[in-house]
Design a protein around this nucleic acid. Structure first.
Lengths: 298, 298
DNA sequence: TGATCTCCATAGGAAGAGCCTATCGGTGAG
DNA sequence: CTCACCGATAGGCTCTTCCTATGGAGATCA
């Protein structure tokens, strides 16, 4: 049984006429006759009664017709659905990102992507860099924005460096500025009241490591919040916090930004995906837009 | 798009392995690869991500899979339905029945069936219920009309109760009526001249069992004949006989019917077929007509 | 009745598709 | 490094599908 045979069969059933059916499907009449005969031979039953000038379906033909139509419709649907995915009129992207990027970089990007491909569903997973890497490897995510370097035991992931962001100290505008001359050294954080993120934030480990490199353990006034909570605590005067400059820039006028002196602290954000399989079309497109609009190449 | 390509596609989706899928569909691995690639080319999208040792469906593949399955199932259904029609046009039914039913119930039914399906050959096996059960089990019959209950050691047969028929006593119209007041008790058969069927007739065992339950052995004037012979002997005045009422009703005016008093004697006729295999289409159709025209539901 | 028309079936040859075996190339394990 | 595995590629054979040309049976009309 071939799709073409079913197409011819339906054409004859509708035209009730071999020659006109052949024209309708753009094939010569003998070819169509031959295919109908082949179909009849395979099924073991005549499909048409070929009374002269009055071609009609046999009972076997009647039984076949609705199924043939449905099969052809399904084939058409299949082509169409795949085409929708290819043309990005449908599909989805499962994107992971760290909380700071979710508020900083993503809104504009996702807005642009959605404007261009409104049919693609965007599923965002907000989480720590470690978790995101694990989910990528499991195939639960298509793409993730993670902090480099990746954990040593990372599975096969490809990464593209996306941007480096400076970390800055934020403090309440109502409090006296920390540090000196509008900048602050890591060493100045010793004994300073720090508001610290919960475990799992890469920022936490980065800050802790920097302090320890200077030979001291930082002091936490409050710890455990998400990004918004931390900024809120700082705003309320509970302490200061080390956050990405991109987050600080959006934090409003009631927060003061103080750059870190010396090399300061930076972290590298990369776009990661599994290296063994190509991401779906929609994810590749998002990746492309992300790299194209890369805010600061590094 | 070809059916074969969809078959291959589903095989790979299920095996997650090209080589094994090729074995499953009995084709060489290159042929299968080639067809998958052709399908991918036609649809304009990869269907599988061919990560080493981990073949998975892409989103396009995921979209196609359910449709491919449905198309293949529809094609199978189409073949099957046409085949059913063919077998009603040229099939056969091997039907077994007890002699009494062959003369009573079957003629009209078979006539109706033949009118509706003139191409179906009807092969009738007339025999005792025991023999019929054995032949059903051997696969020598498609359907049989048998007397319940089935022998204890019956193989796996499905039965549907069809009708219950009373047994009556027939005697020659020229002889004085047996019994009293137009009816007769089993006990009255003691010493009466009975014309008895040959071994194998269920009626024989039924009658014998009834007499023994009353504490006597019946007396046979003649024994060993088929239904027609028995009726002939009764007609000739050789004795009386216990027969199904349906047979007696058709026996003509020269035979007198006398009902059995008290609960009387009844037997249950059922339609039986093997329960492990579906009967052929034509047999199912006969079964359907039989149940639809069931004379007396019970 | 015979000529003609219509329309499906048949014949024969060219182009193409599918399948095969043999082989390549990349990856992961020992 | 070598080997095993596994999907991709190459080349050749065969079968299918298509075409054009033609056959042949039933209807129509003179």
């Amino acid at each position: 049984m071939h799709f073409q045979q079913l197409t011819y069969f339906v054409a004859v059933a509708e035209a009730r006429h071999f020659t006109r059916a052949a024209e309708a499907v753009h094939v010569s009449q003998p070819s169509l006759s031959q295919q109908i005969r082949a179909l009849e031979a395979e099924l073991g039953a005549d499909l048409f009664s070929r009374a002269r000038g009055n071609i009609t379906l046999t009972d076997a033909g009647e039984a076949l017709l609705p199924l043939a139509r449905r099969i052809l419709a399904d084939a058409e649907t299949a082509r169409h659905e795949v085409q929708e995915l290819v043309s990005l009129r449908s599909g989805r992207v499962r994107l992971g990102a760290t909380p700071s990027l979710c508020t900083g970089l993503l809104p504009d990007l996702l807005r642009a992507f959605h404007d261009r491909h409104p049919g693609v569903r965007l599923l965002l997973e907000e989480g720590g860099s470690h978790d995101l890497v694990r989910q990528l490897a499991r195939g639960a995510l298509d793409l993730a924005l993670v902090v480099l370097p990746l954990p040593a035991a990372s599975p096969a992931l490809s990464t593209v460096e996306l941007l480096r962001e400076d970390l800055v100290v934020v403090s309440a505008a109502t409090e006296p500025p920390p540090g000196r001359d509008g900048s602050i050294r890591i060493a100045d954080l010793e004994g300073a009241p720090l508001v610290m993120f919960r475990h799992g934030y890469n920022l936490r480990e980065l800050t802790l490591a920097a302090c320890r490199a200077e030979g001291f353990e930082p002091t936490f006034t409050v710890e455990g919040g998400e990004m918004d909570a931390v900024l809120g605590f700082v705003r309320a005067g509970l302490g200061i916090a080390v956050v990405p400059s991109m987050v600080a820039a959006r934090a409003g006028h009631d927060l003061r930004r103080t750059a870190l002196a010396g090399g300061g602290l930076r972290r590298t954000i990369a776009l990661a995906h599994r290296s063994d399989v190509d991401p779906p079309r929609a994810a590749r497109e998002l990746q492309r837009m992300l790299l194209e609009h890369r805010p600061v190449p590094g």
